[in-house]
Amino acid sequence: MIVAEHVTKRFGRAVAVRDAGLNVRAGEALALWGSNGAGKTTLIRCLLGVTRFQGRATIGGKSVKRHGRAARALVGYVPQELAFHDDVRMGSAMAFFAALRRVDPARAREVLAEVGLTGHERKRVRDLSGGMKQRLALAIALLSDPPVIVLDEPTSNLDAAGRGEVVQTLQRLKEAGKTLVFASHRPDEVISLADTVIVLERGVVQRVTTPLELWPTEKPVQVVRLYLSKASEAEAAQTLRDAGHAVHLNGHGLCVAVPRDRKAEPISVLARRHIEVRNIEVMDDVRVEEVAP
């Protein structure tokens, strides 16, 4: 469904994405995983054909460079945070995008109901909560019922409840056969949704893997995020790996997959090496059995 080959994007002398490639089958869910500045957003922009790049990318066989409009007609895009005119009412925004996508206005009401926003049509975009904005972005993305949904860190600005709602919606979309491509900082989301994970670092694809390979465990796990001083992050990651933990540095602390009954274990390991943990965040439940082959 989505094929990219030798995608390179430069900003002046800086290379944001270097020679990246991917192949997403119809119905597959692909996660882009990496730290801030790893190139996830830039790669998504290249895939959508909204920024110029070297290389080749197609969606449903249509080149995003030569047939960008036709390629993007197959995609619903959900940004990190909905960016639309604040004064516009939700109903007007939906009507505008329905016209752009040549969709019956009745369909707008249908998708608003699907994402639980019925009755809020008169609200202005500026008056919506972060979660509602994200659900509106999802509703706009689903207007034309496109086969591909591309999401750029869709839950990064949401609280736990908002994240749960979005992830549940995405799970339903995946079950309905949609192809998902999403960037995420959250291991729980990646494990819950992704079939394939592309690990990006400094614009380069490091690995094409699966969530289970990235966080290998047979038991139900939770991911804990440890916040440490920047200087000690690399040493802490290595220490935890040496102790047998699956660890990922992603620019928002150290993500460690742990058995649910031993969440404090990484802190003990680090304490033995006199590495101070400043804060800890336990991510949402991850049910590995759901994604196990």
Partner: peptide, 21 residues
Amino acid sequence: MSAQAISVALPRPSIPPTLLG
């Protein structure tokens, strides 16, 4: 991706707006 596969995954036709539209 074949055209058939797309049509299976696409209940409603995703047509880009006309230039004028």
